[in-house]
Computed example of a mutant assay.
Amino acid sequence: MESAKEKFESQLNDIAGDQILQTAKITIKLYQVAKSEAESFWNRVESMFLLNLNQEKADLASKQEIQKMLSYKNEEGWAILSKGPVAMITGRSSTFIKVLEKFTNWKDKIGKKNFEEAFKECYSEIMKSDSHCCRLDIPFVAGKAPERMKCAECERIMEMFISYKCCREGG
Rank of each mutant, 00 (worst) to 15 (best):
Ala24Gln: 09
Glu39Lys: 15
Met127Trp: 02
Ile15Gly: 01
Gln11Asp: 10
Leu53Arg: 10
Met88Phe: 02
Val33Phe: 13
Lys112Ile: 15
Ile26His: 09
Leu70Met: 14
Phe96Asp: 00
Lys63Ala: 03
Lys83Gly: 11
Glu56Tyr: 13
Ser93Met: 11
Tyr164Ile: 09
Leu60Trp: 07
Lys5Tyr: 15
Cys133Met: 12
Lys98Trp: 11
Arg168Pro: 01
Arg168Trp: 01
Gln11His: 13
Glu56Val: 11
Ala16His: 01
Glu76Asn: 08
Ser3Val: 04
Gln19Phe: 14
Arg156Gln: 09
Trp42Pro: 03
Thr90Met: 07
Arg44Asn: 11
Lys29Pro: 03
Cys134Ser: 12
Ala142Phe: 08
Asn105Asp: 11
Lys73Ser: 06
Phe8Gly: 00
Asp14Ser: 13
Asp14Leu: 13
Phe96Glu: 00
Phe161Met: 08
Ala152Phe: 05
Phe8Asn: 01
Ser82Phe: 06
Leu136Lys: 06
Met69Asp: 00
Phe96Ala: 08
Ala38Gln: 13
Leu51Arg: 10
Leu81Pro: 02
Ser163Pro: 03
Ile20Asn: 08
Asn114Cys: 11
Leu30His: 12
Trp42Val: 06
Met149Phe: 09
Gly111His: 15
Leu30Gly: 00
Arg156Tyr: 03
Glu117Gly: 02
Ser10Gln: 13
Lys25Phe: 08
Gln11Leu: 15
